[in-house]
Design a protein around this nucleic acid. Structure first.
Length: 333
DNA sequence: AGGATTTGACCCTT
DNA sequence: AAGGGTCAAATCCT
């Protein structure tokens, strides 16, 4: 059976089921004295979102996601401080053909990574400082003056790049027009262990609408990426999917689906957050990714399947930290 | 001492 | 060739 269709079908069912569940909850809220307007509004948004997602899936079903090509032999080795033959990487001039080919693969991979931006406004409370805590642990690896920009651009990569082969990066650029606004460009998706926490947060909170409105409905376009985003964040059973070829081990930061910083509890933000300031503000998401890149995305992410850490997030099958706050009544509300 | 950040140099893309 | 992205040695911080 066609994997993409299979997944779309399941996602659709899942969306509609969730819509029913939310509607039931809303009905209960109507009969509850304790129910607040905000809660009801939130449920309404959830329901609307389910309908919108379902519609989107139906619209997109005309352009099914293609199965990814087999990985090139070298793509499993993404990057290391030494080359294949063990020589130091700094010796670029003597790079072998194999190394060169490897770099090309890496380049392709990076280029095809899903990319989206957030505009984050900081406030006086945060000291107008760089918004660093988005639920993930980042390490700064570069800073660069950009032509025509007043402020330098900072480059961050996932702290667990080498430990867990997580290739997510982000760029932080302060806005020229409004220095309190930071444009954060995320590239690639986390497949490190912290992604599990964050993905769970994203599903535990209802503010998943903002992203979709801003990034997808706004453009009126139907991207396969959207489907993959859904796949990464919804409770879809992907058991029947061949994980070697078509699994989409994506998980997006908690803000990716419009989750605002104030929406999730700092108590379980990131396992380790060196840059531990907490920011809460509205964000605008803007996904930009070409559909033609999809096959590369699959390739890029399937290359991580050999890793012991799996970023894929079908909630039915994930592994959880035993300390995870399941008892939190708001967790799955 | 080990990890994080800074920063100049290098590489790749356009 | 220019500009952006990344690397890695040097430096800083805890």
């Amino acid at each position: 059976m066609d994997c993409a269709f299979n997944w779309e079908y399941k996602t659709l069912i899942n969306e509609l089921t969730q819509g029913i569940e939310h509607t039931k909850q809303l009905r209960e809220h109507f009969h509850s004295v304790a129910s607040t307007y905000e809660n009801q509004e939130l449920l309404l948004q959830k329901i609307l979102s389910c309908y919108e997602q379902s519609l989107m899936i139906l619209k997109c079903s005309g352009s099914p996601v293609q199965s990814p090509p087999a990985l090139p032999p070298s793509s499993g080795v993404i990057e290391s401080s030494v080359s294949v033959d063990g020589s130091p990487r700094s010796d670029h001039k003597k790079r072998s053909f194999q190394d060169h080919q490897e770099l090309i693969d890496i380049s392709k991979k990076r280029k095809s990574q899903p990319t989206w931006t957030e505009q984050v406004k900081v406030s006086a409370e945060t000291g107008f400082d760089v918004p660093t805590d988005d639920g993930y642990s980042w390490r700064k690896y570069g800073q660069k003056d950009i032509l025509g920009a007043k402020y330098p651009r900072s480059y961050y990569r996932c702290t667990y790049r080498h430990m867990q082969n997580c290739w997510a990066t982000k760029q932080v650029q302060r806005s020229d027009d409004d220095p309190t606004v930071f444009e954060i460009t995320y590239r690639g998706t986390h497949n490190c262990h912290q992604a599990t926490y964050s993905a769970l947060q994203s599903t535990s909170l209802a503010e998943t609408i903002e992203y979709n409105k801003q990034a997808n409905y706004q453009t009126g376009q139907c991207s396969n990426q959207v489907l993959m985003n859904l796949k990464a964040n919804l409770r879809v059973d992907t058991d029947e999917v061949d994980t070697n070829e078509t699994a989409c081990p994506f998980s997006f930061p908690p803000t990716f689906f419009g989750l605002t910083g104030g929406g999730y509890s700092p108590s379980f933000v990131s396992p380790t957050t060196p840059e531990s300031k907490y920011y809460g503000f509205g964000m605008v998401h803007n996904l930009h990714h070409s559909e033609s890149d999809l096959t590369d995305i699959f390739s890029a992410n399937t290359s991580t399947t050999s890793s012991p850490i799996v970023g894929e997030f079908p909630l039915d099958h994930f592994e959880l930290d035993p300390n995870f706050p399941f008892n939190d009544p708001n967790l799955f509300s």
